[in-house]
Simulated scan of single mutants.
Amino acid sequence: MFDLRFAGLFSGGKDSVSSILRSVRQGHELRCVIIIHPKDDESLLYHYPNHHILAKVAGAIGVPIIEIKCEKNDKESEVDNLYNGINQAINQFQVKGLCHGCIHSEFQMNIFRKVVEKFNLKLLSPLWKIDTEIYYNTLFKDNFEIILTRVAANGLDKTWLGKTITPITLRDLRNLSNKFGFNLDFEGGEAETLVMSCPLYKKRIVTKASKSQWDGIRGIFEISDVELIEIKRSNA
Rank of each mutant, 00 (worst) to 15 (best):
L170V: 03
I134H: 05
S125W: 06
F186Q: 06
L200F: 03
E192C: 07
N175G: 06
D157N: 15
T169K: 13
N154S: 14
L170S: 07
K129W: 09
T164K: 15
T149K: 05
K163V: 06
L123C: 11
M196N: 04
D142Y: 10
R174I: 07
F186L: 11
A153V: 04
N175R: 15
L127K: 05
G189P: 00
M196H: 02
F180P: 01
S177N: 10
L173Y: 12
E190V: 00
T164A: 10
R150F: 13
L161N: 07
A191E: 04
K179G: 00
M196G: 01
W128M: 10
N137F: 01
E187M: 05
L200Y: 04
R174P: 01
I147V: 13
T169N: 13
T132D: 10
F182M: 07
G155N: 13
D185C: 11
L156Y: 09
L139M: 12
V151Y: 01
N175C: 08
C198S: 15
T138H: 11
K158S: 15
L124Q: 09
E190A: 03
I146A: 08
D131M: 06
L148S: 05
N137L: 02
I168S: 14
N154V: 11
D131A: 10
I130P: 00
I147T: 04
E192N: 08
P126W: 10
I130N: 01
G155M: 13
R150I: 01
N183H: 11
S197R: 12
T132C: 05
W160T: 01
Y135T: 02
L127R: 02
R150T: 05
K141A: 14
S177D: 12
F180M: 06
I146S: 02
R171E: 15
E145H: 06
T164H: 07
E192D: 09
L156T: 02
K158V: 12
F140S: 08
V195H: 02
Y136I: 10
P199E: 09
S125Q: 14
T169M: 12
G181P: 01
M196W: 04
T164C: 06
L139S: 07
K141C: 04
N178R: 15
L124C: 04
F180S: 02
L139G: 06
L184N: 07
D131V: 03
T159A: 12
F140H: 08
S125L: 12
R150H: 14
E190H: 05
T166M: 03
F182D: 08
N137C: 00
L124H: 07
I134V: 09
N178G: 08
L200K: 03
A153G: 02
